Amino acid sequence: MRLERRQAVSRRAMVLAPVGAVAFTMAVAALLVLWAGAPVGRTYMLLLQGGFGSVFAWSETLTRAIPLMLTGLSVAVAFKARLFNIGAEGQLYGGALAAVAVGGLHGGTGLEWPVWLLFPSMMLAAALAGALLLLGPALMKLRLGVDEVVTTLLINFIVLLGVSALLDGSMKDPTAMGWPQSVSLQDSLALGRLVAQTRVHTGLLWGVALALMVWALFKYTVLGFDIRAVGANARAAAFAGVPVTRTVVTVALLSGSLAGLAGAIEVAGRTSYVTLDMSPGYGYTGIVIAMLAGLHPLGVLAASVFVAGVLVGADTMSRAIGVPTYIADVIVAASLIAVLVATLLTQFRVRRR
């Protein structure tokens, strides 16, 4: 058996690939549900109801989807140029810390900035922190040939250790009764609520707007063409005159900025301070979302809502029939593998020798 590249990939196949991958994943998860002794139909019904069955369910799903949209966009932008950013988790925490440093510790400087200046400064600091955390691995790849998968993954652990040190040190909230958390943002910097008496905040509008901007960047700009060209074949792109180094650096800055903004929006919209468990793996889940979306910015929006709905619905399902919530993690992880295989089969066909 061998793989033979298809001469053309139909749009229909590209659309059906993630759908088929999700269906296959749900079939695999059904075996685990049966193993747990629960009815498959009722389990999946409760999963859907918990994630999408009411206004409250939708509000919780959308709240969970907001950081996933931004980390998914971060990964999609980087992967589009074959810059394999596995460090969105660390970049998210870096952005969150930078946001708190500007919007929380600012009060101790003796200066009083107006909100219209402080809020964009906070967001800019978060974006810059995320961008710098990815710029280093990108430059090491370009200049030294260092594998960015290794460097970005290791930086996640470095950042988390740094966060732990800061939360027990200079950024620790003295009013937290010894709990390791940062100081809180000023109340005036909190994002507003989209729906009254829910946790859905205006960060959702940020996610949608940024997805539209990234889509327009890919589709209508020269930079978007350069990114696609570098992702398709960097050597051929360089031969055709595409500035590969400048394009990869730009992608690194953009991708890291999006992950950093995810941290700032999560702090300003939901937590108001940084803790070590602020993110239950949003950066890593962003990889799954980007792959489910086929690296399409608008597809990231739908994929993030789907994944968030599964994670939120798992809690309701577990309380009702006793199936462990880890089934949601199995669904998310298995969907990534299924999407990779489905995408491979859309580009290659299996031939018998």
Rank of each mutant, 00 (worst) to 15 (best):
M123E: 04
V150N: 04
E4A: 15
M26R: 04
A314D: 08
G169R: 04
P174D: 11
L167K: 01
A240E: 12
T71F: 12
G281D: 07
V22Q: 04
G283Y: 00
I327N: 07
K80F: 11
A17N: 13
M122D: 01
P297G: 07
E4G: 14
A8W: 15
L166A: 07
A229K: 06
I227Q: 03
A334V: 09
A17S: 13
S184C: 05
T63Q: 10
T109V: 09
V288Y: 02
A81L: 07
R82K: 14
I158H: 00
I321A: 06
L153Q: 03
G37P: 08
G256C: 04
R319V: 14
A238W: 07
L189A: 00
G260A: 09
M140E: 07
M14Q: 15
L128C: 05
M45D: 15
T71Y: 14
G241F: 01
D173F: 00
M213L: 15
L344C: 10
M177R: 14
R228E: 13
L311N: 14
A320N: 08
L133Y: 05
I289C: 08
V28K: 11
A334F: 14
W179I: 13
A338V: 11
S188H: 12
L144N: 05
G41D: 12
G224H: 02
R352F: 12
N156E: 01
G72E: 02
K219I: 13
G269M: 06
V77S: 02
A342S: 08
A126N: 06
L62F: 11
T109R: 07
A342Q: 02
L295Q: 05
S188L: 11
L31R: 05
Q347Y: 02
G72Q: 03
Y273N: 10
L344V: 02
Q91W: 00
F24D: 10
G104L: 01
P243A: 08
R193G: 10
H106N: 14
L166I: 07
F225E: 10
K172F: 09
L124Y: 08
L189F: 01
F348Y: 13
L298W: 04
T198E: 02
R5T: 14
S255Q: 06
S170L: 13
A36F: 13
T316M: 14
P297V: 08
A101W: 11
V149G: 05
A328E: 07
G110R: 10
V310Y: 03
T285D: 07
V244K: 03
R64Q: 12
S170M: 13
